[in-house]
Amino acid sequence: MNLLSSPFTRQSLKTHELMRMVILCCIPGILVQAYFFGYGNLIQIALAAATCWGTEAIIMIMRNRPALRITGDHSALLTGVLLGIAVPPFLPWWMTVIAAVFAIGVVKHLYGGLGNNLFNPAMAGYVLLLISFPVAMTSWQPVAALSQHPVGVWDSLQLVFTGFSADGFSLQQVRMTIDGIAAATPLDTVKTDLHQGLTLDESMLKPVFGSFAGAGWEWINLAFLLGGLYLIYRRVTSWAIPGGMLISLFVCSAIGFAFSPDGTASPLLHLFSGATMLGAFFIATDPVSACTTVRGRWIFGALIGLLVYVIRTWGGYPDGVAFAVLLANMCVVLIDHYSKPRTYGHKEAR
């Protein structure tokens, strides 16, 4: 029996368990999302996860590595789940597959596999789609309560795989709200409205905004927040990145709101709409592509928060979490370099 080297005892939480825990903590958010947006996202999650897993297995076989053992770390599965959550529910299936293959094949394994990727694979796949198919990627249907044509499981499958529901409605028709306008996400709506000269209060009167930050979206965000808090409680992830991101986003939006309460979205809207909570607790916290020092993580989180605010306020896209995460990924090495902690016994961090 060879025990290699000290220490001979280890704590129990292993990498694959970490990954599994993160996936499990997504479940509340996924369920709430399914409640509001139908079965589309469940289909997307299944599709993306399966594609990611399969891609990784094939690549491992091609690289003559133990495919089962490596895919057993659940990291590809997690990428797939996050991607599936992020894309619109009725995105054509092949787009999801492209994004999943790109995320695992290019972003993860071309860089050397687990632990070596510079960018968050799920977000890179998402952004690939966002740039290539901007219309499809921003086509969210209204929450079920507001929808003109509620969709069932069968409809959802048909929509994803053929583009038409079982009743023959196209995606565009499905997206119609009861008042006959094509639906947009709350962030999209507020952006368009503010652009058109409406004040925030006027915009907020629309049904899409629900009780405080968007019908459905506010609850989805709360559910992800819940899952994220559990992750922190179990010490799977640390406070630094989500804390940094949420505080920074809050501070930015609060400043903006203080200066122009009519012309910008409120902090509440920023925090509980779009992919804020998902991004803060599940996407930005991907350890591989994030900073590693404690100080660096606060900075990294804060940078994402800032970028999210900037993109949402002035950018061309309604939401900016994916872009913000990727941009912050690029800064990781720099942040790490300048946030090295002071080593014991040294006067200054070198």
Binding site: M1, K14, L18, G115, A290, T343
Partner: peptide, 24 residues
Amino acid sequence: PSADRQMPCIRCGSCAEACPANLL
């Protein structure tokens, strides 16, 4: 446990938090 299930580093940073000398 014997150490035979080594996996790639995922840069989780737990080690940096555990290090008593504040190393990375």
